[in-house]
């Protein structure tokens, strides 16, 4: 957690230097204003999103679902996890907190990779709210057809990575 925080703020510092060298103080205040604008938009939504995710995992049978996509569930578990991921509601605000609960509930790592990939690629909410209105349904259809196998591939590659590095029994949480 702290290593990640240090890394991120280091990235912020490096980018800030680049922007400062190109656009000076005006560039920095502009970037800050952008960040503040998005932040203000999230300030109200995010707490409610986290609350909803937290309540949801109390109601949804996560334990049973986690078992279905456990480390021993293999290819079938990977396929199911990709589908579950595609059905996770909302943006990263709600889906990542739900993903944590799956991981804590005993889901396997390749299955979790497929779940996140499934959510990333299919994200129903995003498709309805942004992609279809902007790009049209024909494009959406072509994109879905092209991306359908990606979550399964992601899960299988993750399994291969775990095997290759001898991490078969890696515990994350």
């Amino acid at each position: 957690m702290t290593a990640a925080a240090i890394f991120i703020w280091a990235v912020v510092a490096v980018l800030a230097v680049f922007v400062w060298r190109r656009a000076g103080t005006a560039g920095l205040t502009g970037a800050g204003r952008d960040a503040l604008g998005t932040g203000r938009m999230l300030a109200f939504r995010l707490p409610f999103a986290l609350l909803a995710a937290s309540f949801l995992v109390q109601v949804v049978p996560v334990a049973a679902l986690s078992h279905v996509i456990g480390p021993a569930s293999g290819l079938l578990g990977i396929v199911l996890a990709g589908l579950i991921g595609g059905l996770l509601p909302g943006g990263p605000m709600t889906s990542f907190p739900i993903a944590i609960v799956f991981l804590q509930g005993g889901a396997g790592i390749p299955q979790m990779v497929a779940l996140i990939a499934g959510w990333s690629v299919f994200a129903l909410h995003r498709m309805l709210a942004y992609e279809a209105p902007i790009m049209g349904w024909r494009f959406v259809g072509l994109r879905l057809a092209s991306c359908a196998v990606l979550p399964v591939l992601a899960g299988l590659i993750a399994e291969a990575i775990l095997l290759a590095f001898g991490l078969g029994d890696l515990q994350l949480l």
Binding site: G30, A31, G32, R33, L36
Partner: peptide, 12 residues
Amino acid sequence: AGLLIGGLVTRL
């Protein structure tokens, strides 16, 4: 930090 990165990258 992520919000700041978003703002900075759009300047670059």
